[in-house]
Write a protein that binds this DNA or RNA. Structure first.
Length: 485
DNA sequence: TTTTGAGTTGTTCGA
DNA sequence: GTCGAACAACTCAAA
């Protein structure tokens, strides 16, 4: 077969879309017959990078959506399972394809995988082309004047905004010459990505619509209203004030460039929203920053960025971790967050900070245990965001929160869930308590508890630690760490 | 090379 | 109730 008529494999990874996908455009533009393939690879990723249960639920539906999208352009999505290099080699043998195109994945294990593939395919005379698409800016493109990676967010983001403009999003390929001979394909249903017993995701399709169409809908809804009060609204977990685009971005169902350009266009059209839009874009900036950090410092997912935190006396045990995971800490706002997570696969960002601070600073449980739980239960679980977020809260990260910053779970609830709607929704056993006791039921007089049907220690736990003394222990532990240096 | 200004998201205490 | 200061120094990034 000549290079002109031999097929090309487009290998879908964390880029489950057809719009603004440079690699797919390039593959289609060759005119060669195209094989669109997704590989479920549970072998190549390192343990901390493996998708958890919630991610697998999302993946199932996202693949379904992508398959429908490709079918609408006259094609199909070939599903295969196994270690990606072996699966691709087999597919090359079957089809005599001359090239593999894909979008880059920047996680450390994926870098290694791509390098290995590149070398192997070179030997075979198969070209391997990797394209950007998952980020606004390529790691390596954003460097300090000294030539190193940025370690502080503000200068990083200032540099990005001042010196680089993300290119305009590209349309989906107009014409794809599909490879027609039938190929053996796995059935999505046989992959067991959906939970069965128990089916904890039964309600999830009421919260989420995985796939490009759902992503576009989310973005439009966000830009039509909530963005205009983003700066303030995003702090209040009971308001629908955030974009909730994170899982769509993680799976690549929408490109960050498309989000950037839609938001920027809105700011241009209504200057009043400019500040709010900038605030929203800086959240995209944090996503970039985390991905760049993980790329330049691949141990961030497993080791503290600040080395002295390797000596931190994490004292919290399994029982504390379990109480936190189940939302049985006795601090209503923490429990509400952990239960929202379990029920929906998502947690509001401010509450993520509160529960993470509680686990690491009140319970002194290692941030890695928290990160592992989030990785398993979040639909937007993302190795870069998750690792950097946890290290930021724990104080061990780059540009981290100062060690003495310990969220007070009572104050946070009172300030940001001021009407108690969030707590009443996710901790219904407290719903009848008056506002002033809602964040600290242990302070309620017995009569108020009785009226609300709350029996502390029976249908809602006593606080598992005392805030003041837990805070003092954490400060002492951090203080000791400092003296060690 | 040295210097300078700055750094996501908080809490507590005392005036 | 409100306000400013202390919490702690250190590292980063650019001039």
């Amino acid at each position: 077969m000549t290079a002109m008529t031999s097929p090309i494999i487009y290998w879908f990874r964390q880029d489950l879309r057809t719009r603004d996908l440079p690699g797919l455009l390039a593959a289609a533009a060759t005119g060669q017959p195209l094989i669109a393939c997704y590989i479920l690879d549970d072998i190549s990723p390192t343990p901390e990078a493996l998708p958890g249960g919630a991610s697998r639920w999302w993946l199932h539906h996202s693949l379904q959506a992508l398959a429908a999208e490709l079918a609408a352009c006259g094609g199909s999505l070939l599903l295969r399972r196994g270690a990606a290099p072996a699966v691709l080699e087999a597919l090359l043998d079957e089809t005599d394809a001359s090239a593999i195109y894909c979008s880059r994945v920047y996680e450390p294990w994926a870098n290694g995988l791509e390098e290995g593939l590149h070398a192997g395919l070179d030997q075979r005379g198969v070209s391997f082309k990797r394209y950007p698409g998952a980020l606004l800016f390529e790691p390596g493109q954003v460097m300090t004047q000294g030539g190193g990676p940025f370690k502080v967010f503000t200068p990083f983001w200032r540099h990005c905004r001042n010196t680089i403009a993300p290119a305009a999003p590209r349309p989906p390929p107009a014409n794809i010459n599909w490879y027609r001979p039938p190929l053996a394909a796995a059935e999505l249903a046989s992959w067991g990505l959906l939970p069965v017993k128990p089916n904890w995701a039964r309600q999830w399709n009421t919260f989420w619509q995985p796939g490009s169409a759902g992503a576009g809908r989310r973005l439009a809804a966000f830009l039509a209203g909530p963005v205009n009060d983003y700066d303030e609204g995003r702090n209040h977990p009971a308001r629908e004030a955030t974009s909730r685009l994170s899982p769509h971005l993680h799976f690549g169902e929408i490109s960050p460039r498309a989000v950037w350009h839609a938001a920027t266009a809105l700011a241009a059209a209504s200057p009043a929203s400019e500040g709010q839009v900038a605030k929203f874009l800086s959240e995209l900036g944090w996503r970039e920053f985390s991905h760049h950090l993980l790329y330049h410092f691949p141990t961030i997912a497993t080791e503290p960025f600040k080395a002295q935190f390797g000596h931190f006396p994490w004292a919290g045990g399994e029982a504390a971790l379990r109480a936190w995971q189940r939302g049985h800490t006795g601090y209503p706002v923490v429990d509400a967050g952990m239960r929202e997570l379990w029920a929906t696969g998502f947690m509001h960002n401010r509450i993520r900070m509160v529960v993470a601070s509680f686990l690491t600073k009140h319970l002194l449980v290692h941030w890695r245990a928290g990160a592992r739980w989030f990785q398993d239960t979040l639909v937007d679980a993302d190795l870069a965001n998750n690792s950097c977020g946890w290290q930021w809260v724990a104080g061990s990260g780059a540009d981290a929160s100062p060690y003495f910053r310990i969220f007070n779970p009572v104050t946070q609830g009172e300030r940001f869930d001021e009407e108690g709607r969030y707590i009443r929704r996710w901790v219904p056993e407290l719903a009848l308590l008056p506002d002033r006791y809602l964040n600290q039921p242990w302070e309620a007089p017995p009569a108020a508890l009785a009226t609300a049907g709350v029996r502390l220690g029976e249908n809602y736990p006593h606080p598992m630690v005392d805030h003041r003394s837990a805070r003092e222990s954490a400060l002492a532990a951090y203080g000791a760490l400092r003296e060690r240096k």
